[in-house]
Amino acid sequence: MAITFHEEDLPSQDLFSDGPIAVDTEAMGLHPGRDRLCLVQLSDGSGNEHLVRFSPGSDYAAPNLKALLGDPDRLKLYHFARFDIAIMRHYLGIMAAPLYCTRTASRLVRTYTDRHGLKELVKELLGTDINKQQQTSDWGGPELSDAQRDYAASDVRYLHALKEKLDVRLQREGRMALAQSCFDFLPARAELDLAGWPETDIFAHS
């Protein structure tokens, strides 16, 4: 297993094998229009992770990263897709879809719990403990610590295996089609967030 660090862009799209690619982001906060995108993490499930860091004042050109994430034939795996695709849409100008969201899938099949965080999901489905200590650290500093890099990589390390486990449950409970409809809607949900409707249910009667 190796974690490879890149500044401002991937050197090539050829770093990844064919098939789904796991994606996560780190930012200065949870408001895509306010908080700066600092890091994009990627893994093809082979056991290697790639981290792309953006500096303050970055123009977010990143042609190789954008081509990879914008590929309509490559499935992107997220844990909380709504945030990740919104902040990448805002800063990178691309919609990183089609997608699969493990948190959304978890909510559809793990209805016996309200704990749908990545740590809980990896523990229950894969039997592995992951360290989330760096979750609220400063991702915009001049250097990322080894602990931050390890944490960031772990956010994409398990998504392929989680998808396999969650798909079994979605099929078992007859909710695969419903899950796919939710995944298909998430880009529109992200656009609504960016356009100013983050909490409003526009489908509600009042």
Score class of each variant (00 low, 15 high):
Glu124Ser: 15
Gln13Ile: 10
Leu126Ala: 08
Phe54Val: 00
Tyr112Asp: 15
Val52Phe: 09
Asp138Pro: 05
Asp201Tyr: 10
Leu92Ala: 04
Ser137Asp: 06
Cys101Pro: 09
Arg89Asp: 13
Ile94Arg: 15
Arg34Glu: 11
Phe54Asp: 01
Gly127Met: 03
Asp35Arg: 07
Met95Arg: 13
Arg157Ala: 15
Tyr100Leu: 15
Arg172Asp: 06
Arg172Ser: 07
Glu8Gln: 14
Leu162Thr: 08
Arg34Trp: 04
Gln171Arg: 15
Glu49Gly: 11
Asp201Gln: 07
Glu143Arg: 13
Gly47His: 10
Tyr151Thr: 08
Gly70Thr: 02
Ala96Tyr: 06
Ser145Asp: 02
Ser145Ile: 01
Ala147Gly: 03
Glu143Met: 06
Asn48Thr: 05
Ala179Ser: 08
Asp84Gly: 03
Ala67Val: 11
Phe203Arg: 02
Arg36Ile: 00
Met88Arg: 15
Arg82Ser: 05
Arg82Gln: 07
Leu186Lys: 04
Gly141Lys: 10
Thr128His: 15
Ile87Gln: 04
Gln171Ala: 12
Glu7Met: 12
Met88Leu: 11
Met176Val: 00
Ala179Gln: 06
Asp129Lys: 15
Gly70Lys: 08
Pro20Arg: 13
Lys163Asp: 03
Ala177Trp: 05
Glu164Cys: 02
Leu192Met: 14
Gln180His: 14
Gly29Asp: 05
Ser137Gln: 07
Gln13Cys: 13
His50Ala: 09
Glu8Asn: 07
Ala153Asn: 11
Pro198Asn: 10
Ala190Asn: 03
Arg82Val: 00
Arg107Phe: 03
Val23Ile: 14
Leu121Glu: 12
Leu68Trp: 05
Ile87Arg: 05
Pro72Cys: 10
Asn64Glu: 13
Phe203Pro: 00
Ser181Glu: 14
Asp84Val: 00
His160Met: 00
Phe183Gly: 02
Thr104Val: 15
Gln41Gly: 12
Ala96Phe: 04
Met88Glu: 14
Asp146Lys: 14
Leu92Tyr: 03
Glu164Leu: 10
Met88Ser: 11
Gly117Phe: 11
Leu194Lys: 01
Met1Val: 04
His90Pro: 00
Gln41Tyr: 08
Ala27Glu: 01
Asp138Trp: 11
Pro56Gly: 08
Asp129Phe: 12
Asp44Gly: 07
Gly33Pro: 03
Asp193Thr: 00
Leu68Ile: 04
His50Pro: 03
Ser12His: 06
Arg82Gly: 04
Met28Val: 06
Arg175Glu: 08
Tyr91Ser: 13
Met1Arg: 08
Asp44Ile: 01
Arg34Thr: 04
Pro142Tyr: 11
Ile3Val: 14
Ile202Ser: 09
Thr104Trp: 09
Leu68Phe: 05
Ile21Asp: 07
Tyr100Ser: 07
Glu49Leu: 01
Lys163Asn: 04
Ser12Arg: 09
Ile3Tyr: 09
